[in-house]
Amino acid sequence: MNNEILMASILEQTNNTAVCSVDQYDMLNVNIQANQLIDLVESLKNKQGFIYLTDICAAHYPERVGSEFEVIYHLHNLVENQRVRLKVGLSESEINVPTLTGLFAGANWMERETFDFYGVNFVGHPDLRRILNMDDMDYHPLRKQYALEDETRTDKNDTFFGR
């Protein structure tokens, strides 16, 4: 099954609302809405053979107003050896996405990690707690507004090299 066939079936499944593109590395990128995720992943898993959830992570794009956050899913069809990347855009005020733990047991910790670092709320997750950071941390450290170093430092002048 090549990317074109898969793309056609994803478009059919989502009534042409998904935005698909094949990148230069031959990976099919699919942008969908949060409410389409479960149906699409379920059909990919049960009908198209994408039984392997490679990875879940998120990214923060503060300048994209309305979809500041993006949750990225990598799925792998082990029989046909095809990968697909699903992306769900989320706004900062409504940062909810349905959990995949019902479909993949392994999504549990991947989603906890994503929650920990970006504060993405995985609706329906059985145990959405922080996983790598300490429990009483009150922010989500991989968001772009948290600079790695204290910006009030005066002992380090890096103006020339943007550091």
């Binding site: 039984i51 959830l53 490679t54 993949f104 047991a105 392994g106 991947m110």
Partner: peptide, 8 residues
């Protein structure tokens, strides 16, 4: 089956 579910 479980190993694949867990993305081993």
């Amino acid at each position: 089956e479980r190993a694949v579910e867990y993305s081993f």
